[in-house]
């Protein structure tokens, strides 16, 4: 690419073309671990959005002061601070959710999506671009979590956001709520996304 991506390009790329989960295969630990129901998936996505947005903005603001060999330390420091804030906030105001997410909130510190965005975008571009990149990528992450959690919660418990959507006669596929269900759902959805993407690429070649 000859020019740096514009804020709008950054925003759009994060959602589908460069979706952090389906296209970059980053942040898979929370993707697999907290997607057995919609509520925890959305809380997780919200926490990641806050951390990513704040970390991107701070990194972008200080990007001219960064020394190449110290940049990772600074990224980690920034990310860890905001993750701790989110963790305390959830423990204070959403206690049961904080308990059910358990160690996965502190584990956002090592979520590769955030450090990748600091490295790829925020440390090179201005604040506005970094912020729209953060929002785009978080929406992509939220979309991925919600798609997996939706499938798993509906098939696993017959419910959606804790409300019954399938008839009571539905034999709950317990495996979908358990860890294997996460891998099955993720694999199948990843296959679907790849299939669509390859069809699109074919079309482009034919047109070109």
């Amino acid at each position: 690419m000859a020019h740096d991506p514009t804020p709008f390009e950054r925003f759009i790329q994060g959602i589908i073309p460069e979706n952090p989960v389906y296209r970059q295969l980053l942040g898979l630990c929370p993707t697999l671990a907290v997607t057995n129901n919609m509520q925890s998936a959305i809380t997780m996505a919200g926490a990641v959005t806050f951390v990513l947005l704040c970390a991107n903005i701070i990194t972008s603001l200080i990007r001219n002061l960064l020394k190449p060999h110290l940049r990772i330390v600074i990224f980690t420091l920034t990310i860890a601070t905001f993750v701790t804030l989110v963790d305390r906030f959830l423990a204070a105001y959403m206690y049961t959710m904080s308990k059910s997410l358990g160690p996965y909130i502190p584990l956002i510190i090592v979520n590769c999506i955030i450090i990748a965005r600091c490295e790829v975008c925020a440390s090179k571009q201005d604040v506005f671009t970094a912020a729209s990149d953060a929002i785009g990528q978080s929406m992509g992450f939220a979309l991925a979590l919600a798609s997996i959690a939706g499938v798993r919660e509906i098939l696993g418990t017959g419910m959606f956001f804790g409300i019954r959507v399938l008839p009571a006669a539905w034999p709950d596929w317990v495996i979908m709520a358990l860890p294997p269900g996460a891998f099955l759902t993720f694999g199948l959805l990843l296959g679907v996304v790849n299939f669509i993407e390859s069809k699109r690429a074919e079309k482009k070649i034919h047109k070109g």
Binding site: L70, V73, I74, T81, R88
Partner: peptide
Amino acid sequence: WLVLILALCFGSSIASINLALSPII
């Protein structure tokens, strides 16, 4: 110097947030 200053700022902000939220927790 940047790491040190950031560490100080972040550390104090976490401390103050924790001070405010720990009674609720």
